[in-house]
Write a protein that binds this DNA or RNA. Structure first.
Lengths: 123, 123
DNA sequence: TTAACTGTACTAACATAATTAATACAGTTA
DNA sequence: TAACTGTATTAATTATGTTAGTACAGTTAA
């Protein structure tokens, strides 16, 4: 379900945060469902429970999950996650568009790239 | 000319590489002109000469500069830098467009964002 | 009530990468 | 020759991430 990329420069706990966010967005983890326990996920990934703990703490800090002591960590409503991801992407796009403009990309080139990404395989 | 951001998670030498690339693209450093010497830039930024040395080695590895022992580090032709930046941006755009699509951005929203970045203040 | 789960907290050890420090060597230039 | 250039090397230091081990508190079901 979750794979750690040791070539990735980001720390493990950040990768886990990102992977879980993706899984929530894709509906694999539904709102109010329980995430794997700290210890079981640590076991599954062969890493230390402290690292999972840190990832889960970060997810809670972002409002993406809530935890009930003794019970587990649970997925919050998907809305705030979508909103925060949208905001994040918007910033990235703005920055990248500006750089693209500066380096000499034309609008048309960007639109072509965009169409390629938005192309439907099964229209 | 160059400012180090200590809040930036990237190492200093990487920041320096990026800043110098930008200065070359902007024409502040012209082709075949000499970069500040390792020691003088280290002095100016109040960091260790070894760190500058590492940044300069990276710039040379990328083909963005060439060095003449005893003389200094010099800016290569701007072409390969532009090409590599274009390639880099293209990858970023492709990834970001795909994410944007998945999270629910419409093409129209992206084009609006793009137009905002490409807007001319003095048409 | 107890056993087996949950999350949380804390300290110590360890690993790695980045950075600093100090020194040395080689080529260039005035 | 003196004062610049880049390069190389080794050691110490710092910061961060990760691991290890232990302990404590709440929940749940037998």
């Amino acid at each position: 379900m979750i794979l750690i990329d040791y070539k990735d420069r980001r720390p493990i706990y950040e990768q886990i945060v990102e992977k879980i966010e993706t899984l929530i967005l894709k509906g694999v983890f539904e709102p109010d469902s329980m995430l794997p326990s700290v210890r079981s996920l640590a076991m599954e990934l062969s890493i230390n429970p402290n690292t999972i703990q840190r990832a889960y703490a970060e997810l809670e800090r972002k409002g993406i999950t809530y935890t009930v002591k003794g019970k587990g960590s649970f997925v919050s409503s998907r809305n705030e996650l979508i909103d925060s991801k949208k905001e994040e992407l918007k910033m990235t796009l703005q920055t990248t568009f500006l750089q693209a403009k500066e380096i000499g990309f034309t609008k048309e080139e960007l639109i072509t790239l965009m169409n390629a990404s938005y192309e439907e395989e099964n229209p």
